[in-house]
């Protein structure tokens, strides 16, 4: 649908090892690849290390060991993270918005890039329009609803045009409509060639969105035993969802064409 490029991963980590201070081996992953325009779904029980894995992928928290393939070079994680950090953005399960206006949240990353004030203002304005947040631009971000907060956080990340986006439980605590919007946004990201990694307990909102599903168990990644809601294949959505998912798919199809 989106001309998925499966040739080379954007980011590939091998030999990821992480042991907790208690001595428990948390991660023991041989290989994890993130591809352009594809959505990887990670599942697994609570406390199994999904968030730790995302933070390692994002360059925020160090693993004990990992090798990173990025832009044609293979480097150990500490050396690699300086190169790839800028292209990978992590979103917390409960997104964190700075105690300032929506505009000042969205322009946060741009202001560190040495752009002119007008360039920053233009890009922020366009991004806010794109996300349908223009009417909230001057509001303090802390006063928004959960769904609005998440949209601000996503916009704040997207305005930096990352190549990889890591979403930690993006559907938790959202109402049906916000889930739909978030799912729609992920579809859009895929169509804009962003590699997306999502952890989720809920598979339904990812129906037709996830291209690959891996389960984290005992520190290792493997295809799950149970059904996978893969793009195109997927679970049969519940009746009340069928219309919604169809709506999302057509909407994305329209955008892409």
């Amino acid at each position: 649908m989106n001309g998925v490029d499966v040739s080379l991963p954007i980011l590939r980590l091998t030999d990821i090892r992480k042991t907790l201070p208690t001595g428990r081996r948390l991660l023991e992953i041989d290989e994890l690849s993130i591809h352009t325009g594809r959505c990887l779904l990670l599942t697994g029980p609570n406390g199994i290390g999904k968030t730790t894995l995302l933070k390692i992928l994002s360059g925020l928290d160090p693993p004990d060991h990992a090798l990173v393939d990025y832009r044609g070079t293979r480097l150990p994680w500490p050396a690699a993270r300086r190169h790839y950090r800028r292209d990978v953005i992590y979103l917390h399960q409960q997104v964190y918005l700075f105690d300032r206006s929506v505009t000042d949240n969205v322009n946060y990353g741009l202001r560190g890039l040495g752009l002119s004030r007008t360039q920053v203002a233009e890009r922020v304005q366009r991004a806010l329009e794109w996300a349908g947040l223009s009417h909230l631009a001057g509001r303090n971000a802390r006063e928004l609803s959960g769904g609005e907060k998440q949209r601000v956080a996503l916009t704040r990340a997207l305005v930096l045009t990352p190549r990889v986006l890591l979403l930690d439980e993006p559907f938790s605590g959202l109402d049906e409509e916000s889930r739909g919007r978030t799912g729609f946004l992920i579809q859009r990201l895929k169509s804009e060639q962003v590699g997306v990694v999502v952890t989720s307990h809920e598979l339904l909102p990812l129906t037709g969105i996830a291209d690959e599903h891996l389960e984290l168990r005992a520190g290792r990644l493997a295809p799950p035993a149970r059904t996978v809601p893969r793009a195109g294949v997927g679970l049969r959505p519940r009746d009340e969802w069928r219309g919604h998912v169809a709506y999302l798919n057509t909407k994305v199809g329209d955008e892409a064409s």
Partner: peptide, 26 residues
């Protein structure tokens, strides 16, 4: 304080000193 402030600033590309000022502003 909430660690997410630091992590969010860093993942949005802020250098450590700028992320520090952001946390203090929060």
């Amino acid at each position: 304080a909430d660690r997410r402030a630091w992590e969010t600033a860093r993942t949005l590309g802020a250098a450590p000193w700028r992320a520090m000022l952001t946390v203090m502003t929060e």
